[in-house]
């Protein structure tokens, strides 16, 4: 897919979801703004701490893609589960996991969500129905299908939102999972976050058919492309997909057309794309600016109210960063624990 046709696809998808903004209330926009901003500020802070040597290893930032997880979360019901790959900080914060616990895991401290043993790519919260956090590209697709299997086995009415990227969309086990999900009518929504690059390789250079929403066609799984930069459009699409899966009709694929502003991981020099391309998205399609503009112009929210949200979010993130640096490292005895039960 060329640059231009990708934008056209995205805008076409946006057009289809135009009605969704009418059902998105002022309060919805306010909440979406705050939730997306929390992720943005968290990731900026994580990038800063990484730059200071306080976060090690791999650190994949979610900046630019915030509308996807926030919109999806707004459509979910209590009990629905989430599973994703390694670019997972945004998903965790969207499910309501504490920024403090996530940041402390990034710095490898005992108060982190995995007691410092998992790091950026491996965090979980049974309480928030977040099943990770997986470092092997595509593995979470089969795992998420298995969580959906458990929903059907127990007839609990829950749906598992299974996220993966445009890169993972080419993995073989994705199609093995699609087949079983449809064959057994499992309640799963596959959320393909197409941010245009699998590490440094563009979708067009890795995928014979770049319309990833149709990747379930041979299994008769319905799919659609969605403007992943518009939170109201995301919520509406995920709502439709969840209803489909919950009604026993089986899986549904949503391809979220989105964009990551930062490199694949912190140590990515990003030479595979131009600064102009990044700036185009930042300046014209930013999901947070989009919501901020609607709050100010359509809903006449005073600028001071927006600034108050900005301030509160910044304080929460600063507190998380301080917590993540002041908490102790795991006790040496933790080396031996949690290997087996």
């Amino acid at each position: 897919m060329t640059e231009d046709s990708a934008v056209v696809e995205r805008e076409k998808a946006a057009g289809a979801g135009a009605k969704s903004s009418e059902t998105f209330s002022k309060e919805d926009y306010r909440r979406a703004y705050e939730d997306m901003l929390l992720i943005r500020r968290f990731e900026e802070k994580a990038g800063q701490l990484y730059g200071m040597g306080l976060i090690g290893g791999f650190c994949h930032l979610y900046i630019g893609q915030e509308a996807v997880v926030v919109g999806a979360q707004m459509a979910m019901q209590e009990g629905d589960q989430v599973i994703t790959g390694y670019r997972d900080h945004g998903h965790m914060l969207a499910t309501g996991m504490e920024p403090k616990g996530v940041m402390a895991e990034l710095t490898g401290r005992s108060s982190g969500y995995s007691k410092g043993k998992g790091g950026s790519m491996h965090m979980f919260s049974v309480e928030k129905n977040f099943f990770g956090g997986h470092g092997i590209v595509g593995a979470q697709v089969s795992l998420g299908t298995g969580i959906a299997f458990s929903n059907r086995y127990r007839e609990n009415g829950a749906v598992c939102l299974t996220y993966f990227g445009d890169g993972a969309a080419n993995q073989g086990q994705v199609y093995e999972s699609f087949n079983m999900a449809k064959l057994w009518s499992l309640p799963v929504v596959y959320m393909i976050e197409n941010n245009k690059y699998g590490m440094g390789t563009s979708v067009a250079r890795a995928s014979s058919n770049t319309n990833l929403s149709q990747r379930g066609a041979s299994f008769e799984i319905p799919g659609e492309q969605v403007d992943g930069m518009a939170v109201e459009t995301v919520r509406a699409a995920v709502g439709r997909a969840l209803a489909h899966a919950r009604a026993g009709k089986g899986p549904y694929i949503l391809e979220m057309l989105t964009y990551r502003y930062r490199g694949h991981s912190m140590s990515d020099p990003a030479k595979y794309r131009t600064r102009d391309e990044v700036n185009e998205y930042r300046q014209k399609h930013d999901p947070i600016d989009h919501v901020r503009e609607i709050l100010l112009s359509k809903h006449k929210v005073p600028e001071d109210d927006i600034k108050a949200i900005d301030k509160r979010v910044r304080e929460e993130i600063n507190a998380a960063a301080e917590f993540a640096q002041s908490e102790p490292e795991p006790d040496p005895a933790e080396l031996w624990t949690d290997v087996v039960r």
Binding site: A139, L143, G144, G146, A148, F149, S150, E176, S177, M180
Partner: peptide
């Protein structure tokens, strides 16, 4: 058939499905 399940010949996929079901408590 609810508890004794024939799978397609897809070891990688059905193993992942089994592990996911175990994460969810089965």
């Amino acid at each position: 058939a609810r508890r004794v399940i024939d799978t397609p010949i897809t070891e990688h996929g059905f193993t992942g499905v089994g592990v996911g079901a175990a994460f969810a408590g089965l």
